[in-house]
């Protein structure tokens, strides 16, 4: 095979790889768009029925998830209340370890220090 032919095959090969993976990227994006839309529709149904009475803490975490638009490509921001980032990182690692679940498969919305009432 001549070097020129080899160059042409190389360009063609690289284009095929890019084409295949680019189309896969489009498919994944479409999958995400349709998946998110379906998820939103599912969430909209219980919202129409009305809010479910919940304990104060649960309501707070729910409101945290709803406040502000989620950054693109992000799982959202973790809210910390009276908690050092270092301690939060440790707590998340411990929870992941206890649940035997990779930390990237968990989503933490907020971490709040529960202060004990010293008068009691």
């Amino acid at each position: 095979m001549s070097f020129v032919d080899a160059c042409l095959y190389s360009v063609a090969g690289l284009l095929v790889v890019f084409f295949a993976l680019f189309l896969l990227m489009i498919i994944i994006k479409l999958m995400t768009v349709f998946g998110d839309a379906a998820e939103k529709r599912q969430k909209a149904v219980p919202a129409a029925v009305g809010p479910i009475p919940a304990p104060e803490a649960a309501a707070e975490s729910f409101s945290l998830r709803q406040t502000g638009p989620m950054a693109p490509g992000s799982a959202g921001e973790l809210k910390l209340y009276d908690t050092e980032p270092r301690v939060a990182a440790m707590l998340m690692a411990i929870v992941a370890d206890e649940l035997k679940t990779p930390i990237n498969e968990l989503r933490f919305l907020s971490i709040k220090e529960i202060k004990e009432d010293t008068d009691k």
């Binding site: 095979m1 070097f3 080899a6 160059c7 095959y9 190389s10 360009v11 090969g13 690289l14 790889v17 890019f18 295949a20 993976l21 680019f22 896969l24 990227m25 994944i28 994006k29 995400t32 490509g73």
Partner: peptide, 27 residues
């Protein structure tokens, strides 16, 4: 990869090595 589909393009670009070595092996 599903969280960031653009990664696929980086995976494609790294295949440049295959075709560069193929060219050198012939040339």
């Amino acid at each position: 990869l599903l969280a960031n589909p653009k990664s696929l393009l980086l995976g494609a670009a790294a295949q440049f090595g295959i075709f560069a070595a193929f060219l050198m092996a012939i040339g």
